[in-house]
Structure formats: structure tokens, C-alpha cells
Design a binder for these strands. Structure first.
Lengths: 222, 222
DNA sequence: ACCTGAACACCGTTCAAGT
DNA sequence: ACCTGAACACCGTTCAAGT
């Protein structure tokens, strides 16, 4: 019932999850589907389009199940905090489940309908928080950029310094590092999940600061 | 005088800048250097190592020229704002000059000595701002993640929705998009540089909020 | 409509050989 | 020490052909 295209997409995703993005070749995907490499082309167009479709699927994966009463509803005045956090966690979880996404997320961004829906949820949360509409798009980009960047940093190893200590030249710069020197006791390994939480707290604070104190009232005409 | 390795690296960077990351093949780099593909291996090890070295070079490119009197100095109490902005702009400029970096920056993060130096500058700026040392590493990651994510979003097209409207399925979701509906007048094209500036203002505000009011005084023992 | 097989122009990398 | 040439096991994609 799921057509051939979905089957191909599923095979590509499974391959990427199991053996990394480099293992996703048209030939390997085809073999997994049980078909000749050329048979993929009428369905997915090209390898680039296949990768785009893979990214599109991640958008769907992070979309929460539709709420009973859709949207802001009457609900709690502070519910937007919960919504924003749920979206942020969902995004982080998706990247953790599919670490290969760290490579693609900034170079092949998806604007699938489901990704647009996720953006819309963030818009709604920010509006519910009382952010002036003119500033909402900027805060959406600020929040989503940070969340996606954080998850990609974790998945890609940008936060685990030692991992890439084996780099071009020697391991440590010869010059002085006054910042590192002062922070020596605080440069141990840290709790990445707790840090994400603290960062979200800070972003919330930023939103509070720009928020209109009368969040739900429609601006009276004048 | 620049040894072969530097020559190879320069060729790879030029190729990536001129014709994109996909044009960077061992064969193409070798041809540009005027040598057989195999001749590269003793110098760069492998293609993966070559890509790492390319990323390492970007770290060096964003390092500001060493200040006359290095570091915090006596200077202005507020100088940290200037430092942080200079680093943020430098990072953004580097990614704009080398858009292929958007692909690699999260999946092949570099911890070259020069990248460590950049991190150290951010540490110093945050300390000078009065951020409690225990919180400095977290704020460094918060700021650098946002800055790099923002630049990668610009370079990779994550911010220009229309660009990727040609995606998996139809162009617009069938369901309602209450957020988009409310924001219609504000969803026009915007000034990406001005937005980056406003975002940095916000991050500064966040730093002010956690900053110790007595920034320069070394914490008295107790 | 959907798939196959052969072929083309590429890849990264190994290895033995040259100087 | 540094480079070459041939070769191996792959790529994405085109095209003509099959059913």
C-alpha cells in the first residue's frame, strides 16, 4: 500500500541510521529494496532529491500528534512554554535518532509541509507568549537556529572537544590561553541534556522580555 | 616555502570556493596542484583528513589579528561587547566567504589550535562581562552554536523558504496554519544582517542578566 | 507503467615500481 | 623522500531494450 517511493525512502533512512550517510548509495538502497539501481530513478528523481526527501521525513517525525482542541485554545496562559519545550525536545530527539541529519540539516534544509507546520507551531507559541507579531519571525528563527544547531553540535561531535583533538597540527596552541586558564575547574565534561534545558530557560527569559504584558487580548484598533 | 601540504590545502579551498564542495575530489585537487592523485596521500593522509584540514583553516581565518596589548587589559569595562561582536561577525563572514562550510561545520567540527583560540577569546569576553566562571562554558556554547547556526542557515538556504519550496510533496500543507495566518504581513523578506545584529543584542542582554555586577574583582576567598 | 543490463564518466585508495 | 601508473572496488546517471 505504501507506494514504491515510500518503500525506497524507508530503505534509505534505515541504511543511513544503521550504517551512516556514506552508506546511502543508489546502488545500496536499490539492493535493499530488491531492485536494480535504475529502477529508483522514476520514483525519486535523483540522489539529491532522495536526500531532500529523507530530510523531509524528519520534519514529519518531529511534528507532535495533533492536539485534541487544536492550537492556543482557552487553556493555560503559560501553556506556550510547554509547547515550545516540546517542540525543542522533539527536534533534538529526532537529530539524536538520526545523527546523519547533522550533516544535511543546514545544507539541505527541508520546507516540507510538515516542516512548515512545525514553524507554525513555534509562531503560535510565540504569539501566545505575547511577542509582538512583528518580532515573531525573528524569534522563530532565533529559537529554531539554536535548537537545531545544538542538536547538530551534539550529534556531530562539535561539543566533545577531545574527539577531534587529532587535527591538522599539534594538539594545543603554543600561545597563552587566558580564558581556558581561568576556567580550568569548569572545563570538565558536562550534562548535555541539562545544558539544553538551561539554554531553553534563557531563551524563554528572552521571550518574556519582549513579550507584550497583555498576551491574549487582540490589539484594539487605533 | 609553504610546503606541499599547504599548497594542496590552498588548491582544495580554491576549488571548494569556486565550484562547490562536490568539486573537491582528490583527482581534481591533484590536477590543480599539477601532480598525480596518489601524490597527495603522503601529505594529507586521506580525503577525510583533507576536509578536516580545510575546516581547520577556517578557524584561522576568523581569528582576529592579535591585539597590541593582548587580552582584557585595563581597557574599557564594556569592551567585551565589542570583542564578542567582532568574533561573531568574523565567524559569519568566514561562512559567507566559504558557503561549503555550512555542510561541514557541524559534521566535521575542527578543534585546530586556532579554533581553540577563538573559543578562548569568547571565554575571555564572557569573563570580562562578569559571567560567573561556572557558567562561562555553557554561554560560550550557547553563543557559538547560535552564531555558527545562523551563518550556516544563511549560507545553506535554511532561511530562504521559497528556495526549497520544491520539496517532497505539495507546496503548502492542507491543514490550517494559524500562526502563518496571523503573521501574514510580517512574513516578507527581511534584512538578514540587521536580524543578526538584533539577535546579538538579545544574547548580550542574556549575558547582562547572568553577569556578576562586579565584573573585574577576583572573587575573594571564602 | 515499471524494470533491466550494459555502458559512461567518474570516485577514493592500494600497491608495486620508478627516481 | 617523493612521485607515477596501473588496478580495484566502488559511485551517479543515460540510454536502449525488454515485459
Amino acid at each position: 500500500m505504501p507506494d514504491r517511493k515510500q518503500e525506497i525512502l524507508a530503505a534509505a533512512l534505515a541504511l543511513a541510521d544503521e550504517r551512516g550517510l556514506d552508506a546511502v548509495s543508489m546502488r545500496a538502497v536499490a539492493e535493499r529494496v530488491g531492485v536494480t539501481p535504475m529502477a529508483l530513478y522514476p520514483h525519486v528523481g535523483s540522489k539529491a532529491a532522495l536526500l531532500d526527501a529523507m530530510m523531509g521525513r524528519l520534519g514529519s517525525e518531529m511534528l507532535p500528534p495533533p492536539r485534541a482542541a487544536t492550537g492556543p485554545a482557552a487553556a493555560d496562559q503559560q501553556a506556550w512554554r510547554q509547547w515550545l519545550r516540546e517542540i525543542a525536545y522533539a527536534a533534538r530527539d529526532v537529530v539524536h535518532r538520526h545523527p546523519w541529519a547533522a550533516t544535511l540539516i543546514f545544507s539541505r534544509p527541508s520546507m516540507d509541509p510538515d516542516a512548515v507546520r512545525v514553524t507554525d507551531l513555534i509562531y503560535s507559541a510565540l504569539l501566545a507568549a505575547g511577542v509582538p507579531p512583528a518580532k515573531v519571525p525573528r524569534y522563530e528563527r532565533l529559537v529554531s537556529t539554536f535548537v537545531v544547531g545544538y542538536a547538530a553540535s551534539e550529534a556531530g561531535g562539535r561539543f566533545s572537544r577531545s574527539r577531534n583533538a587529532r587535527s591538522t597540527r599539534g594538539d594545543l596552541p603554543e600561545g597563552p590561553l587566558p580564558g581556558h586558564a581561568q576556567l580550568r575547574p569548569y572545563l570538565t565534561r558536562w550534562d548535555s541534556a541539562a545544558e539544553f534545558d538551561a539554554d531553553l530557560d534563557d531563551l524563554e527569559r528572552l521571550i518574556d522580555l519582549t513579550a507584550d504584558p497583555i498576551p491574549e487580548a487582540p490589539p484594539s484598533e487605533r
